[in-house]
Design a protein around this nucleic acid. Structure first.
Length: 522
RNA sequence: GCCGCGGUAGUAUAGCCCGGCCAAGUAUGCGGGCCUUUCGAGCCCGUGACCCGGGUUCAAAUCCCGGCCGCGGCACCA
């Protein structure tokens, strides 16, 4: 019974079996968001620090925010959290680069904010908070304060009157204090079990004459902390669902105290575990360090797990989406295996990638008995829409290159089939086997099939293009030099092709007729 | 050390809230076969997991307790 007959039989007698199959094929689905009905419109926010470009780990909240907003027909906010001009200094080019990464991912957002442009808002909320008795200016040294905090006692500054607090706050903003001399603290229960939650810092002084902010320069010296700025913005911007990694769990607790003082209702917070990608570097600080030391190709070095690096290597945005959705919002950390990522990408890329012949370590093969000819080869074995290309073989007798690896097969077995061209038999070769002479057996495929000949790829002697494949192996980049069919040059930069029996590569650049490609996966 | 969160095959994930339909599903990997002018894809078959120990119950991956292990926080970072 043929496959079609089997399907027909199923359809007529057990149609429900076919139905089920379709449902499984739908792919991963995210769990529903909590308390969606409570809100008129679901609003998520992706809030990166523009101190680096996006990597796979930061793509997770971005994609989740986008997917959930889309699913509930809600809105998504993009907010740059750049309130630390000192330690996590924003990178001027990161604002733009992050947006490019998001666009590449196919993420669209509805609103966009930059926190360093909202300082006045934070100041006014801070004033309101002090007036309500929810915060105070602390003049203790860090060590002094820690002593009070660890003992669960109030520091003397906490007990001053609201009028005094407001006065001190004004002095802070006017520049009366210098770095380290004063902070604004949020009042919390002094005996809260987790000491790190107690009396957390909402504003600190940063001397921006020394470390100017890339956007607002030295205009402000009093800066909100992450917890203050993010918490205030989430409320003001109407965020309903916060999706962030679990390192923010304690921050959620801290921020809730701020909301309580101001009489606000805290949004739904969902925390997920951290993401690792096998064989890739995902730490921003580490990548920054390596880049500064040199011998790395910038943010998109193929050893990095940045989105620009994955893109450069030939991973598709669709693949990133799928893997993130697949991992979901679990609380546990996940290590994505490279095999898994490659499998997803391969499935998408395989049906559309043109097949091209490439040989590394080329060896010359002269085919006696084969006259100049042309070969019309399909660009894809099953996707006929990709069409064909014609390869011309002009020299007489015909000469081609094969890879040194395949020449060993020829030397051992005596016969091979040159794909789509001819079956050949070994005649002789020079000492180092860099030049091989073979004779034509026949051109028909059946001979090769019957004899189970290895079918190998080849490149014409007189028409080819130099290619260097950059392949990341551990912490090095391996360079594979070889020759490919001239046709690759027509395919153009940024395309993903499959080099037959080598693997998928992305054409990165064509300079002076030489091609640089990045190895994607098998 | 103190606070918090988690532990399902090699990897990832479903099921856990609402105990029985779970002798645990799916993807990928791995082994075998078919197909194929690629070491790619596709198709078929197989492989493999509930961290450990107690308890509750007629019944526990699912609830409770203890242990072990992992992760996160303990910044005037985000």
């Amino acid at each position: 019974m043929s496959l079609n007959e089997q399907i027909e039989l199923l359809r007529s007698r057990w149609p429900e079996l076919l139905e089920e199959r379709r449902e499984i094929a739908k792919g991963p689905e995210l769990p529903p968001l909590p308390n969606v009905d409570k809100y008129k419109v679901v609003k998520t926010r992706f809030a990166p620090n523009p101190d680096f470009v996006l990597h796979l780990g930061s793509a997770r909240p971005a994609i989740l925010c986008y997917e959930y907003a889309k699913r509930y027909k809600g809105k998504m906010i993009l907010r740059f959290e750049d309130t630390d001009p000192r330690i996590k200094r924003p990178l001027p080019e990161a604002y733009k680069a992050i947006k490019e990464d998001l666009r590449w991912l196919g993420i669209k957002w509805d609103e966009e904010y930059i926190q360093s442009l909202r300082m006045k808002i934070y100041y006014s909320i801070a004033r309101e908070l002090i007036e309500k008795g929810g915060a105070y200016v602390d003049l203790c040294s860090p060590n002094e304060f820690r002593k009070y905090r660890d003992e669960g006692r109030a520091c003397p500054h906490r007990e001053k009157s609201i009028e005094e607090q407001l006065e001190l706050w004004d002095k802070m903003i006017e520049g009366y204090f210098s770095e380290g001399e004063a902070v604004l603290r949020i009042k919390t229960p002094l005996d809260y079990p987790d000491p790190s939650v107690r009396e957390w810092v909402a504003f600190r002084i940063i001397d921006t004459s020394k470390t100017p902010h890339p956007i607002v320069g030295d205009k402000y010296i009093v800066w909100p902390t992450y917890n203050f700025a993010a918490a205030v913005d989430d409320h003001l911007m109407g965020v309903t669902h916060i999706l962030r990694a679990k390192e923010h769990q304690t921050n959620t607790i801290k921020q809730k105290f701020l909301y309580k003082h101001l009489g606000w209702e805290y949004p739904e917070a969902i925390h997920f575990g951290r993401l690792r990608l096998e064989g890739f570097m995902l730490s921003k600080s580490k990548m920054r360090e390596l880049m500064e030391r040199g011998d790395y190709e910038g943010y998109s070095d193929p050893r990095f797990g940045t989105l620009s690096a994955l893109r450069r290597r030939g991973f598709l945005a669709e693949t990133i989406h799928k893997i993130i959705l697949d991992v979901g919002v679990k609380h546990t950390d996940a290590t994505i295996s490279f095999e898994n990522l490659a499998a997803i990408n391969r499935k998408i890329v395989d049906p559309i990638a043109p097949r091209i012949m490439f040989v590394d370590n080329p060896v010359i093969v002269e085919i006696e008995g084969l006259d100049p000819t042309t070969v019309e080869m399909p660009l894809h074995p099953s996707n006929k829409e990709l069409g064909t290309r014609v390869i011309e073989l002009k020299s007489k007798p015909v000469k081609v290159f094969i890879s040194a690896k395949d020449s060993k097969i020829l030397l051992n077995k005596g016969e091979v089939r040159l794909m789509e061209l001819a079956n050949v038999r070994l005649l002789e070769h020079n000492v180092d086997a860099k030049r091989i002479k073979v004779e034509l057996i026949s051109r028909d495929l059946d001979y090769a099939r019957n004899r189970k000949l290895q079918i190998i790829q080849w490149v014409p002697y007189d028409s080819n293009v130099q290619v260097t494949i950059k392949k990341p192996v551990e912490d090095k980049i391996e360079l594979i030099n070889g020759l490919a069919e001239q046709y690759v040059a027509n395919i153009g930069v940024d395309k993903i092709v499959q080099f037959i029996r080598v693997g998928f590569v992305r054409i990165d650049s064509i300079i002076d007729g030489k091609i640089i490609a990045y190895y994607t996966h098998d």
